[in-house]
Write a protein that binds this DNA or RNA. Structure first.
Lengths: 154, 154
DNA sequence: TATTGTTATACTCTATAACTATA
DNA sequence: TATAGTTATAGAGTATAACAATA
């Protein structure tokens, strides 16, 4: 068993659970996100949506949500917000009149790229004491956990 | 840079950000928590509180919250819930009449121990394809991220 | 003055159910 | 019938500000 550190000895069994530590570590990145790009009102989830649209111009709303594990009902509000902020354009999908194709506006692209470069910079700072190999190992192990995700019942 | 997998090629830059993957992996554990012990209405945060109290009988409400990164204002409601569920006892602190000392009731201990053993079992399943060394590495790397947490401004 | 707990409140993310319009 | 998007609503976690009692 991994030895309990002084800092965590108050946690009890919790300190041995990977799920707990993932939660706290995720929160560290979340706070850092807020400090880094929160000033412009960009949050983690909307930023993630911008990234998916940037990488897949014309992607449908449902597909974008699916890539991120966001339910359709919740995508509506999030996309509304991004459209109202002038970051995303909605267009009817060419082949399916029920569907909506999403693209970034010039402003959206600019916001996304600015946020991205600052986030990468901050992530480099946050992981400054990680060797490239450790960083590679970390992301590889985390991805294996993600792969265990259960499909939603919907 | 870590190669992009097929599964994640829709994510764009996001796929290179450790923060995003931590968030998704944490969510996998969160869903698993719900499937495992959600039936009794036990959630991640209340469970974490039970663990801290179990490891530190008589701990003050504020200290318990601090160990978990939960703000004082939010602890009140959470402790109320655990007291009403019969899992936690409140007692005035011996040396400070402003403070409250928390202990587990018999029911709280039983609930906590049952949940713990099932959670460990499920965590073992979720990480079944991790070698002991990989698991050790994972938790060690995550703890180093946690250590980068910024103190709250309060 | 500072700290412990409390109340009230707001925001974000997530979840479910019922609806519409298209397929 | 099934799917894409929508609306409404609720639950959970977190954040801030103002307050009472005590230190």
């Amino acid at each position: 068993m991994t030895p309990t550190t002084d800092r965590n000895e108050a946690l009890g069994v919790l300190d041995a659970l990977v799920g707990y530590h993932l939660r706290r570590a995720s929160s560290v990145f979340g706070s850092d996100f807020g400090r880094t790009v929160g000033g412009e009102g960009l949050r983690q989830v909307p930023f993630a949506i911008l990234s998916v649209i940037a990488a897949n111009p014309g992607i449908r709303q449902g597909a974008a949500g699916e890539a991120l594990g966001i339910k359709r009902a919740n995508m509506v509000v999030l996309i509304n917000e991004l459209v109202e902020a002038g970051h995303v354009d909605r267009a009817p999908a060419a082949d399916d009149r029920r569907a909506i194709a999403l693209t970034l506006t010039a402003s959206g692209r600019q916001t996304f790229e600015g946020a991205t470069s600052r986030l990468i910079e901050h992530e480099d700072q946050l992981l400054a004491d990680f060797t490239p190999g450790e960083r590679e190992t970390l992301i590889r192990l985390i991805r294996r956990i993600e792969a265990r995700e259960q499909p939603p019942g919907d």
